[in-house]
Write a protein that binds this DNA or RNA. Structure first.
Length: 777
DNA sequence: GAGTTTGAAACT
DNA sequence: CAGTTTCAAACTC
């Protein structure tokens, strides 16, 4: 971990030690105050700073990035050092210490060992944790990987537990000072206070995270989304603990539930949790924003509540990454593993006995079609999903699978139990398992952006040395079938828009045959810096190259707005010899027709020519589009294909599910008002259920607004400001801005036609502070 | 697989 | 801002 990050972590601790909260906690038991330990720092750096960076990662897949960071960062931590630090008991709790000591033991192992040998500093936490549901997935191999899983999950547990603990502390504190109010009532109220204020914020982080993470294979993901989205804030203890935690993952058993809440608070445990969890830094940062003035005792409770609330919010942000990471990792190893039938055995960590190297890939989290573990794809390579023909659709489906396939080795990582052919076979098997019918592809597309850029997974991984040519050949071969093509840069260091990966906002990954590549997570800073420079020149440089319009048109319920003509290249092509009939043409490659923005010569673009067709917004164009749309409804097959290909559905969930890194990274304050609206979420998920294109639902007028509103980067809003901004800032003004786009995009126009970028750049906007201190401007 | 073509991106 | 160069993907053989 970088020193800056570590120092960043340490500083708040010292502040925390000076805080009344800390003193209060410290006075509750003789336990040593929170100390920074290498391991603790490291982990916290991972759990906070790294996660933060993960959310700023170009990839929408913070999960795997996080895992990689966890894995590698811990790997970077010398074991002996870790052990000694822990053994010295510098504030690390037993579970953590034992977990580290055991180098990858499962939670059960860790907890049991901790229980057997609890350090003096943490007399209670071990036993307390050991009370948790049995984790019989212990790894006899004590592989390190499970520990990381365990640790990350443990953090989740601990975080919640700590939240509970802090609350209980509050309760006890009140008990001490007040005339012992009804404990149960107080507890309930406390929970309300704890959750209520930030319910929306909590809500924000859950839908795509917890819902996805906990989705069972046979469960309808949308249902889960709705369920969790709507219920989580108000019934965290019930729905999450019961519905979600029920056997899916052991760690969920740590979730606070009313019953537990009503139990006698274990102050030591509370404190231990506070110590154990590195969150106090975060907590304090927020906590310090609350005025803890003279009347400490009085303000303390409030401060606690507020602080906890905010801290929890932050933690949820972290946990979100963690949980989602877990979700993604199931894919490679255990596709469609039946949790229902084997839920009890699915513990926090799965250490299959038949595998020498248990890895996260064997983590038994359910896989479901359309889960965010699917691929990002969108925005990649000229939005190549914008296809119209049936074979294109099939290609798209294959592409999704293919990219998944790409992701698998990556997700497996160096500790993958599968290597070489075995892994490939498994991947292929998984791919086959993931073959989806059309509807599921649609659903899959919805979440693909949420699914994180697969290449992100390659952080720190040793890309197998495959000769560039071989790789390229491989990618060339695969490009037609699964679109797993990657870049082949030689001179650009993959830090220029020449590089498809970089341009697409993803890190280069194994299939790439690039040379001297800097487009890797380990060079993230450089990548972001470069990206920033490029964006400074052209703010939409990383925007999807294909911009499409969405509108509601026919009443058939079919998405009729899938015509290629409804989408346009953001700048237009400049072809001279290819006649826009080859993939040299970005319009053609993007599956969209040429527009007046194009300066092509002899255009014969099969998807539409600029001759007589102006860019979207033009009256005639709209009419023609509607006509085409209606005609398409008469051709169900093609219409459906188009729906699958160019539907707006992916656009909405992409935005709604906060799945883009940018949104992930958005401050909760910003995020809350829009995404936190359960009704919107419900609408979203409902539509996902019914496979009805979002734009056709009237109620999505407002949804669309919200989607394209506060939470949507200006670049995605497709409104006048975007266009004007593009015009003003483009280094190549004559090419960037479609002249008509912004002029007619009124909210009332034909049910809210909107410009929607075909995809969302995977890289976070570089307006976003990499260090997450000022996420969005 | 090597070489060519092409057009976007970058540079001047 | 236009012209030129660089670059890597697409394409051809």
């Amino acid at each position: 971990m970088d020193t800056p990050e570590r120092s960043k972590v340490v500083t708040p601790i010292s502040k925390f030690e000076d805080s009344p909260v800390f003193n209060f906690i410290n006075n509750l038991s003789p336990i040593q105050p929170v100390k920074s330990v290498n391991a603790a720092q490291t982990f916290h750096s991972l759990s906070y700073a790294s996660i933060t960076s993960i959310f700023t990662s170009p990839h929408v897949n913070p999960q795997k990035e996080l895992r990689s960071l966890l894995r590698h960062s811990f790997s970077e931590l010398p074991k002996h050092e870790t052990s000694s630090d822990i053994d010295n008991g510098h504030g690390l709790c037993v579970g953590e210490a034992q977990a580290i000591r055991s180098s990858g033991c499962t939670v059960k192992c860790s907890l049991n060992e901790a229980n057997l040998d609890p350090p003096d500093e943490c007399p209670d936490v071990s036993s307390d944790l050991a009370k948790s549901e049995p984790c019989d997935g212990g790894s006899p191999n004590h592989n390190i990987t499970p520990f990381y899983i365990a640790r990350s999950d443990l953090k989740w547990d601990v975080s919640l537990d700590k939240r509970k603990g802090l609350f209980l502390t509050q309760v006890e504190h009140q008990d001490k000072h007040d005339s012992k109010p009804n404990e149960e009532e107080l507890t309930q109220c406390g929970w309300e206070n704890l959750i209520g204020d930030d319910a929306d914020n909590l809500l924000i982080f859950d839908p795509s995270t917890e819902a996805d993470a906990f989705d069972g294979p046979n469960e309808n993901s949308q249902e889960n989304d709705v369920k969790l989205c709507n219920s989580f804030p108000s019934s965290l203890q019930r729905d999450v603990a019961d519905d979600v935690a029920e056997g899916l993952q052991l760690n969920v058993s740590f979730l606070p539930c009313p019953e537990e809440m009503n139990s006698v608070p274990d102050v030591d445990h509370i404190k231990e949790q506070v110590e154990m969890d590195q969150t106090p830094q975060i907590f304090l940062e927020n906590f310090q924003n609350h005025s803890l003035t003279s009347d400490r005792n009085h303000k303390l409770d409030y401060g606690f509540t507020s602080g906890i609330s905010i801290a929890c919010k932050v933690e949820f942000q972290q946990q979100r990454g963690t949980r989602r990471r877990c979700l993604n990792f199931e894919v490679p190893g255990v596709p469609k593993m039946s949790l229902q039938s084997d839920s009890t055995s699915h513990n926090l960590i799965s250490c299959p006995s038949d595998e020498e190297h248990p890895s996260v890939d064997s983590h038994p989290v359910p896989l479901r079609a359309g889960s965010p573990c699917m691929l990002p794809g969108i925005g990649l390579h000229l939005n190549t999903l914008a296809k119209t023909s049936r074979d294109k659709l099939l290609t798209r489906g294959a592409m999704l699978s293919g990219r998944r396939l790409i992701s698998m080795p990556s997700s497996a990582g160096p500790l993958s139990p599968f290597t070489g052919q075995e892994h490939q076979d498994k991947s292929l098997s998984i791919q086959r398992d993931l073959e989806l019918p059309g509807n599921e592809i649609q659903d899959l597309m919805i979440v693909q952006n949420d699914a994180s850029e697969v290449p992100a997974l390659t952080y720190g991984e040793d890309l197998r040395p495959i000769s560039p040519k071989k790789k390229r050949r491989k990618s060339e071969i695969g490009s037609e079938s699964d679109s797993c093509k990657r870049c082949n840069c030689k001179k650009s260091q993959c830090l220029k828009l020449y590089c498809e990966c970089f341009a697409a906002g993803v890190f280069c990954v194994e299939p790439c045959s690039c040379q001297g590549c800097f487009n890797k997570p380990i060079h993230q800073e450089k990548v972001l810096t470069t990206r920033k420079q490029i964006e400074s020149r052209n703010p939409i440089a990383f925007a999807p190259k294909v911009i499409r319009a969405s509108e509601s048109s026919c009443d058939t319920g079919e998405d009729t707005n899938k015509t290629p003509a409804s989408a346009r290249h953001k700048r237009g092509c400049n072809c001279k010899k290819s006649s826009c009939l080859k993939k040299y043409c970005e319009c053609y490659q993007g599956g969209v027709g040429c527009s007046v923005s194009c300066r092509c010569e002899g255009c014969k673009n099969a998807f539409g020519r600029k001759d007589g067709i102006s860019l979207l917004g033009d009256e005639e164009f709209d009419q023609e589009e509607e006509k085409n749309a209606c005609e398409e409804t008469d051709k169900p097959d093609e219409g459906q294909q188009n729906a699958n290909i160019q539907t707006d559905i992916p656009q909405f969930p992409e935005n709604m599910s906060q799945s883009t890194p940018t949104q992930d990274f958005r401050p909760p304050q910003t995020l809350a008002p829009t995404v936190g609206d359960s009704s919107q979420l419900e609408s979203c998920t409902t539509l996902r259920n019914c496979d009805i294109p979002l734009p056709q639902c009237g109620k999505f007028g407002s949804l669309g607004k919200s989607i394209l509103g506060d939470d949507t980067p200006a670049i995605l809003r497709g409104n006048r400001s975007l266009i004007s901004g593009v015009k003003a800032s483009s280094p190549n003004r004559k090419r960037v801005s479609p002249p008509h786009i912004g002029t007619r995009l009124t909210p009332n126009h034909k049910g809210g036609r909107k410009l929607i970028l075909k995809s969302i750049p995977s890289f976070p906007s570089l307006n976003t502070d990499v260090n997450s201190e000022n996420p969005m401007k």
